[in-house]
């Protein structure tokens, strides 16, 4: 139940965010779909008590993959789907907790979340990096400008 609500939520959230980024109408639901897949994987992983960092990595990997596939199928730049779709994994939670514990004067927890946020940011970078590299391999030279 929570999972379904979470997936539906990510779809709505990313659809909204895509509008904020001025994504053309026909791509808005697709961006939402990419986000829903990522959000669903993230939620599923955390429900299975997986580490947040690993969950972020897996969902970012899935989103990057889906974005690249969408970009090729629907002939649009990857950015269109990637920027909106990656949002569920961006460590907003960590940022908030860092500030919260600074104000609470809890150095230990603050440091913990600071490190975790940096780790998640690094994992997102790694996921995008991997997918970009993978898809660059199997792309003919003349289409280079297209992604």
């Amino acid at each position: 139940m929570t999972l379904i609500l979470g997936i539906a939520g990510s779809f709505i959230a990313i659809t909204g965010f895509a509008v904020l980024l001025e994504t053309p109408r026909k791509y808005v639901p697709l961006a939402g779909l990419a986000g829903a897949i990522g959000g669903g994987i993230y939620l599923y992983c955390t429900q299975k008590e997986m580490d947040v960092v690993l969950a972020s990595f897996l969902s970012a990997l899935a989103i990057a993959f889906v974005s690249h596939v969408f970009a090729r199928v629907f002939k649009a730049p990857v950015t269109v789907f990637l920027i909106a779709g990656i949002l569920p994994t961006v460590p907003g939670t960590g940022m908030y907790r860092i500030v919260y514990y600074i104000i609470e004067n809890d150095r230990e927890m603050c440091g913990y979340y600071l490190l975790q946020t940096l780790e998640i940011a690094g994992m997102i970078a790694l996921a995008i990096f991997i997918m970009d590299t993978v898809f660059r391999f199997r792309k003919p030279q003349r289409e280079r400008g297209a992604d």
């Binding site: 609500l5 979470g6 939520g9 709505i12 959230a13 990313i14 659809t15 909204g16 993230y42 569920p88």
Partner: peptide
């Protein structure tokens, strides 16, 4: 819509 959608997540 964005905060509403993210709340369940």
């Amino acid at each position: 819509l964005v905060p509403m959608g993210f709340a369940p997540l």
